[in-house]
Design a protein around this nucleic acid. Structure first.
Lengths: 189, 189
DNA sequence: AGGTGGATAGAACGGTCTGTCTATCGGCGT
DNA sequence: ACGCCGATAGACAGACCGTTCTATCCACCT
């Protein structure tokens, strides 16, 4: 009963599974990673996966859901000490910049998931995207720009483009470049 | 001997295969489409695929290569009547706008391929991307902007972002929005 | 008319995928 | 000390994957 996420040294199979799956999905893609590999690299038994999640599909959804929640939490934590709304906006780029090398420059994982499953409406992906949009609008209102909604759309387009470029070029440079573009777009607005 | 691509009414199995594969790859993704489905929808015999291409992998590369050549040809044709270099640049967005609904708003197919095969260096994808970059630089030089290279990078980032947004939202609006952003970026430069 | 070669239909093979099943192990509470 | 329950190891089933093979067919050329 008290087994779930209690001792930090020994985590549950469900947790280890989710972490390993997340790393593999991010690096190689979701369709390219089979459950056999997840099981082998996590050291978890096959049956544990199916008792904990029920299917690979459910594990994928748990992965995307955790991605959304964790990304939001990281941003919230990172902007905690900041006052300037513009600095908070640029934090999106700073976080992407920091995680890009760790993720082998695979770009936006939400976009990757949407690419791999074109005809599914993936809830966490849409939710994350809407959160990003509304957060940008809010911050741009605080910054006192003339057209918060339009400018937010600009920032988000730049954000998407910088992550796409990072994936193409296997480099963090496009994200740095996008950060500058975003800063300039806010200044101009 | 004279069988290859002679009569326009009845095309060769290789051609029908490539066309059907292209449509399916674009709509559902490359990994998601098996050879069985390509064969069924094209009405081509199984053996014909392997005598013509040798493997699914080779068919995929032929698809990507044809994508690159055709996209360049379409752009060249579209800008033939144009003089203004800025108009030529915006033609990239116009073409994307026109093809987006036909492709079910699946965004940039080069990005999709790069997403599905993260650790392969796909030649046509890199070539297409470099062609886009150098073409933009050339046109921006003609337009007399101060920093052609930097501005070209901006345009390409906006282009990438607009296609990514189109995929997320299943809409052509982000491409229209990106077109405006690109026009503004050129004006400002 | 006869033959040649490309296209076709479809069976079959080996491999991999997700998912299920059985059996054993080990820690923890009573 | 016993029993329970989660975790483990691994075989297994069924579907699908790409690929090869065999055999038939048909259009075209001499």
């Amino acid at each position: 009963m008290r087994s779930t996420a209690e001792t930090p040294t020994k985590r549950s199979p469900a947790e280890r599974l989710l972490e390993t799956a997340g790393e593999l999905f991010a690096e190689y893609g979701i369709r390219a990673v089979g459950v056999d590999r997840i099981l082998a690299e996590s050291g978890v038994a096959r049956a544990s996966l199916y008792t904990a999640y029920g299917s690979k599909d459910a594990l994928v959804h748990a992965y995307l859901d955790g991605l959304d929640r964790r990304d939001r939490a990281r941003w919230n934590e990172a902007v905690e000490a900041l006052d300037d709304p513009v600095a908070k906006i640029l934090t999106f780029f700073d976080l992407a910049l920091a995680s890009a090398p760790r993720k082998n420059f695979r770009g936006c994982q939400y976009a990757n998931a949407a690419t791999e499953f074109p005809q599914e409406r993936i809830e966490p992906v849409l939710a994350h995207r809407e959160w990003l949009r509304s957060t940008l609008v809010e911050l741009l209102e605080q910054a006192g720009v003339a057209d918060p909604k339009g400018t937010a759309e600009q920032i988000r387009l730049i954000y998407d483009g910088s992550l796409a470029g990072s994936k193409f070029e296997h480099s963090a440079d496009p994200i740095r470049f996008g950060r500058e573009m975003a800063a300039a777009a806010i200044s101009a607005a």
